[in-house]
């Protein structure tokens, strides 16, 4: 597991462009994209471990806000999307 990122609200973060095997809770359409931490949640046990009945290390969970136009070329300017991303899926941007 990559080192979990510790970030604050307002930190610009990039979702790892990564495709490990197993149970993943980071949507593919967000991988590689840059967003901003909206709020810090958790810690919650890593769902990628819970799925296999392993205890799951507690990790920070971040609500990350993306500009829709960064995700889709034809999005309405100003529209946004937020998703919950676990700390080990994020890197500093």
């Amino acid at each position: 597991m990559p080192t979990p990122l510790h970030a604050e609200p307002g930190t610009r973060v990039r979702v790892r462009d990564w495709a490990p095997p197993g149970h993943i809770r980071t949507p593919a359409y967000l991988r590689g994209h840059i967003g901003t931490v909206e709020r810090v949640l958790g810690p919650f046990p890593n769902p990628e471990d819970l799925a296999y009945r392993r205890p799951g290390a507690p990790l920070p969970l971040y609500r990350v806000r993306f500009a829709a136009s960064d995700l889709w070329p034809d999005a309405t300017p100003g529209d946004t999307l937020e998703a919950e991303i676990y700390a080990h899926w994020l890197e500093d941007a």
């Binding site: 919650f44 829709a68 100003g78 946004t80 937020e82 998703a83």
Partner: peptide, 15 residues
């Protein structure tokens, strides 16, 4: 209208 921002919330984890 376009001046109303649409914000999508993808419920991906514990919230």
């Amino acid at each position: 209208p376009e001046h109303v921002q649409v914000r999508v919330h993808d419920s991906t984890a514990d919230m």
